[in-house]
Design a protein around this nucleic acid. Structure first.
Lengths: 337, 337
DNA sequence: CTTGGCACTCGGGAACACAGAGTGCCAAGC
DNA sequence: GCTTGGCACTCTGTGTTCCCGAGTGCCAAG
């Protein structure tokens, strides 16, 4: 029982509400959009839409406001992603092109996205999972401590300080470094554990304690960082918007890495452009917010995800366009480097 | 003409106002603190304090509120830093002790400080200026690109990707790496430019273009990072407080590295525990906030600063105690590693 | 210098009225 | 059967008024 005109009405309601932030009434709708019907007809349609749960009125005798379900229908069937202007594209491209390393890429991306969408931007660091080992470095810091540095082909650098069981000399370290590099170079991070499983056995007995210590740190750092680093920017953009739920809760959620992580999507398909609307979100404290996220990564390998978080009442077509575009450009940049 | 009792009155006003967030009147003062005088006397004192600019009334016939000048006097002469409880000390110690690397130390510190003070915490990364070169690594990424990694004795790792003018082979890279390490190892970062100034001349002609490229990147990265990285946490704590000025401005300032940088203090004495109150702050948008900051660093070398930002109406003794304590513990941790 | 008394001043909250926007329903028209 | 104009009704938000109470400044007495 949802015919085309009712859908058009819903679309109009969403658009008007997003742009005015006020409940929209039948008369205003008839005026602003040329639906070709009278306010009375629209009222009838709205009554039906309300009954079906797509819209609601804050109180009797006020205009209608889209519900989460209404936004969902809008996003799924009534809107199309709005591409960016060419000026915006150029700006993105040149802004991202200046990045000097992976940290810089992520930093620039998150700022760019925040500025572009005027929302809070969230960017996950490229996953190590799909990376390969480029180089392993062991740097003696003192007699019994050394720094372990792992460099991946995605430009990521992992570092750990290792406390050694014994005093070791430079040569042993050099030897182990050579062996590690020989056996791990080019190896995918996920297969590192297998590769090094039997490594101690192939070493002279006196090197084994050292190797075991270092390898255990290596493994640990791989596991630890499996839940990946995430950064956000643009919190100031939250200040304007008024949430149904407290601003405090939103800010708190943003500082919880693990929450952010799940927000970006536990989807199996990393590359999808996903939208999570209001109550679809599992976290209380984020009920009034929506998340638009997309995967990025070089070529066919999706490395991680990025997106924005904003009030449920957001301009979905534009936001989705911006997120998708930024994801693509970041992918390009990463592919080129 | 500011005798002891007037100071006592000012102190009482600050304390009451901080704890109640309401303008404090003469009667309430006489009740809550036993100043040994009547409300009328207090009124006289308050009139004087107001005339001298230490307190103000939001409107006629309301209680008094400390001015920035009043807070300043309070901080300078009327309060003493409140030490933490031993439980808190223990919590700090064990929380910081678990850090695995420098990033982790900074991250834990900033979160700890935010939680402890219920304000926004700001921590500057240890400065490279006082660090020395521990190791330089050159990792070939492809034929014409290599990654340059600089490891310092403070555990900081700087990385840059370098585009090379020509295809270079592994041996040349190895050679240059050896030379770089030989001449830079243990050298203070500030003296790196001098050390490498004449390096190309001491190389065979064919290595010079490569060396020049890499060295220029090295220099660049030293300069670039001179304005140091800063992180913050606890933005959620801002949500409760109401600023005279918009929350938005504060959040915006927090995301500007360079602003944060200057907030922590351009003081020549890195180690000082400094307080900047309201309008003493050069930035519009941060008029309603105060900053309490302290230096930290191992031993006699102060490496950087950390602190918290909160509403002008904050509990200075407690906040100062927390900041000072955290600074000390971080210094300890860094000295030990 | 301190103190009690006293008149004065505002801000904030409660009570109230009212305009305006929007709705639901109904009966007439295409 | 859908659409439309008319109409009574229901709210919220806003503006007004009024009043209470906290707090002050001043003054004269101790």
């Amino acid at each position: 029982m949802v015919d085309d005109r009712k859908l058009a009405v819903l679309r109009a309601i969403v658009e008007d509400y997003v742009s005015t932030n006020e409940p929209v009434g039948s008369k205003a709708l008839a005026d602003r959009h040329n639906l070709g019907v009278s306010p009375a007809t629209i009222r009838n349609d709205m009554a039906v839409l309300e009954e079906q749960g797509y819209i609601a009125q804050p109180h009797t005798s006020a205009g209608r406001v889209p519900t989460d379900k209404g936004y969902r229908l809008f996003v799924d069937r009534l809107s199309q992603v709005k591409p960016l202007s060419s000026a915006e594209r150029k700006a993105i491209e040149s802004f991202l092109a200046g990045a000097v390393d992976i940290d810089d890429v992520v930093m620039r991306t998150v700022r760019l996205l925040a500025q572009l969408t005027r929302q809070v931007a969230v960017v996950q660091y490229p996953m190590l999972t799909h990376s390969t080992v480029r180089h392993v470095e062991l740097v003696p810091l003192s007699e019994r401590r050394l720094m372990f540095v792992l460099i991946t082909n995605t430009g990521r650098v992992e570092q750990r300080v290792v406390e050694l069981p014994d005093v070791v000399d430079e040569q042993r370290v050099a030897h182990l470094r050579a062996i590690l590099n020989a056996s791990l170079d080019g190896c995918g991070l996920t297969s590192v554990p297998d590769k090094i499983a039997d490594l101690p056995e192939r070493l002279p007995t006196e090197d084994r304690p050292l190797a075991a210590t270092i390898l255990s740190v290596l493994l640990e750092s791989l596991v630890d960082r499996h839940d990946e680093k995430i950064v956000f920017a643009g919190a100031a953009n939250l200040a304007g918007a008024d949430f149904t739920v407290g601003l405090r809760d939103v800010l708190e959620a943003l500082e919880e890495q693990v929450v952010l992580m799940r927000l970006l999507g536990e989807t199996s398909d990393l590359s999808a452009l996903t939208v999570r609307i209001g109550s679809e979100n599992p976290y209380t404290g984020l009920q009034g917010t929506s998340i638009v996220a997309a995967g990025y990564g070089s070529g066919d390998k999706q490395l991680a995800r990025l997106g924005v978080l904003g009030p449920t009442r957001m301009d979905y077509p534009v936001t989705m366009g911006a997120v998708r575009a930024v994801a693509r450009y970041v992918s390009q940049i990463l592919a080129a480097s």
